[in-house]
């Protein structure tokens, strides 16, 4: 189909999200909620020294928010915490490779905001 926003990679992540579900063990978790659309994302992070050893998420929401969270968990796994705290909103939007309106940026950045909260 010709709708670039909903390109195949986004839809794949939405339908079959990576690292989805609450793991048995984790070190840090955080949840955020967007009352305007009812989207919610919860992240579970396991760390080893300064490294994100494992990361999972669960939640519900639109294709953009769920695909973004899924792609973010793939990206964050194995990265240094210090590097991830420098991972900006702009970087997150780049990771998705789609043009988003201001309204939809909130969807894309929900998981990112939860991750930043976990790294605090």
């Amino acid at each position: 189909m010709d709708n670039y926003l909903y390109r195949e990679e986004i839809l794949d992540h939405y339908k079959d999200p990576h690292n989805f579900g609450k793991p048995h063990t984790f070190d840090i978790s955080s949840m955020q909620y967007n009352p305007f659309c009812g989207d919610e994302i919860e992240l579970f992070v396991s760390t080893e020294d300064d490294t994100v050893r494992d990361i999972h998420f669960k939640g519900k929401g639109c294709a953009i928010s769920l695909a973004a969270a899924s792609m973010l968990t793939d990206f964050a796994k194995g990265k240094k915490k210090t590097a991830l705290t420098k991972f900006s909103q702009h970087d997150m939007l780049d990771l998705l490779e789609i043009e988003l309106s201001e309204t939809r940026k909130k969807c894309a950045l929900l998981g990112w905001a939860v991750l930043q909260d976990c790294l605090k």
């Binding site: 926003l5 305007f36 639109c62």
Partner: peptide, 29 residues
Amino acid sequence: GIHPHDAAQILGDMNICVRSGHHCTMPLH
């Protein structure tokens, strides 16, 4: 299986103007 925001966005991209969200009726939703 399709979030209302995604539906409204794709319709919007086709210039079909509908609204998605809670329509200022959160207790009703």
